[in-house]
C-alpha cells in the first residue's frame, strides 16, 4: 500500500469503526435476528416463526393492506396537489410569494405531536371545527375516529397536509429551472397555457416528480406517527394500523425482535421494490 493511501485510511479509521459498529453491524445483526424465534429463551434458528409467519399472519396482512391503500391514494393525490401548488407558488400573479412559500412549507417544521393534537381537536366528532362545517352545510356528522373509512381518510388528509408543501417546494425548484424562453417559443407556436403545462412543464418536471414520488413511497411505507397519535394507535380496531405501527408493536410492545426484524426487512424491500417500479415506469426513453 502506498504511503499516502495508508495515511488516508489511518485518518478514516475512527469513522469507519463507528460506521461499522453502529450502521453495518445493526443491519447485519437484524438480518440474522429475522431468522430467530425470539419469543422464548434461548433464541433458536426458526425462520418459520418469522418469515413464515409473515405469510399467514392476518394482522400483518391488515397492516400491509392499510399501508398500500394509503400509498395508492395519498401519494398520487399529494403529488398532484404539490405540483399544482408549485405552479401557483411560481406564478408572477401571486402576491407575497416568499411568505406563501414558507406558509406551505411550515407544516414540516411543526412537531408531529403538536400537529396531531390539533388534528384530533379539529376532527373531534362532537366539537371539532370540521364537523361543525360539515353539519353547517347540511351534511351528516362524521365520526372520524370511530368509522374505519373516515379514520383512513383522516390519516390520508393529515399526511397530505403535512407533506404537500414540502414536495411543492422541491417541485418549485424544478419549475424554476425551466427556462422562460421555452414557454415563449411555445407561445409563438400557438400552444395554449394548459397545453404548455401538459406538453412542456410536466415532461420537464418528470425527474423531480419521480424523485418526490420515491421519497413519498419510502415515507408512507414507514408511516407511524399519524396512525399512532391521531387515530389512537391504528384505531378504530386496527383500521388504520400501518406497517410502521405493526413493526413498533412487535418490537416495543411484544418484544418479538426476530419477527420485528423480518417485518422491518419486508418494509425496506417493499419500499425499494415500489420505488424501482416507479423509476422504471418513469424512465426516459432512449
Amino acid at each position: 500500500m502506498r504511503m499516502r493511501t495508508r495515511a488516508a485510511y489511518g485518518f478514516l479509521t475512527p469513522y469507519l469503526l463507528i460506521f461499522a459498529a453502529f450502521w453495518v453491524w445493526p443491519i447485519v445483526y437484524s438480518f440474522y435476528l429475522s431468522f430467530l424465534a425470539t419469543r422464548i429463551q434461548p433464541w433458536r434458528f426458526n425462520p418459520g416463526m418469522t418469515w413464515g409467519r409473515l405469510v399467514v399472519d392476518p394482522a400483518f396482512a391488515n397492516a400491509l393492506k392499510n399501508t398500500l391503500i394509503i400509498l395508492v391514494i395519498q401519494v398520487p393525490v399529494m403529488i398532484a396537489l404539490a405540483t399544482l401548488l408549485a405552479v401557483l407558488l411560481n406564478s408572477q400573479l401571486l402576491r407575497a410569494r416568499g411568505i406563501m412559500r414558507f406558509a406551505f412549507f411550515a407544516p414540516v417544521v411543526v412537531g408531529e405531536a403538536a400537529y396531531a393534537a390539533v388534528f384530533r381537536l379539529m376532527f373531534n366528532a362532537d366539537f371539532g371545527v370540521v364537523n361543525k362545517l360539515i353539519t353547517g352545510i347540511g351534511l351528516p356528522r362524521v365520526d372520524w375516529f370511530a368509522s374505519p373509512t373516515a379514520a383512513m381518510a383522516l390519516i390520508i388528509m393529515a399526511v397530505t397536509w403535512r407533506w404537500v408543501g414540502y414536495n411543492a417546494i422541491i417541485i418549485l425548484s424544478g419549475l424554476q429551472a425551466i427556462p422562460n424562453d421555452v414557454y415563449e417559443a411555445a407561445t409563438l407556436d400557438r400552444v395554449s397555457k394548459p397545453r404548455q403545462f401538459f406538453f412542456i412543464t410536466l415532461p420537464l418536471l418528470k425527474p423531480i416528480i419521480l424523485f418526490c414520488v420515491v421519497l413519498s413511497v419510502i415515507g408512507t411505507m414507514q408511516l407511524f406517527a399519524e396512525p399512532f397519535l391521531i387515530t389512537n394507535r391504528g384505531g378504530p380496531g386496527g383500521a388504520t394500523e400501518t406497517l410502521g405501527l405493526f413493526l413498533y408493536r412487535q418490537g416495543f410492545t411484544v418484544l418479538n425482535f426476530g419477527y420485528a426484524s423480518a417485518v422491518a426487512y419486508t418494509i425496506a424491500a417493499l419500499a425499494i421494490f415500489i420505488s424501482l417500479v416507479n423509476l422504471w415506469i418513469g424512465r426516459s426513453p432512449k
Binding site: V182, E184, A185, L188, I200
Partner: peptide
C-alpha cells in the same frame, strides 16, 4: 394581435428548444 397570429417566427439566443 396575439404573438402566434402575427405571422412572425423567432429564433432565440438560447435556442429555446424543447429539451424532452
Amino acid at each position: 394581435v396575439e404573438p402566434a397570429d402575427r405571422g412572425t417566427a423567432m429564433v432565440f439566443q438560447s435556442y429555446a428548444l424543447y429539451p424532452h
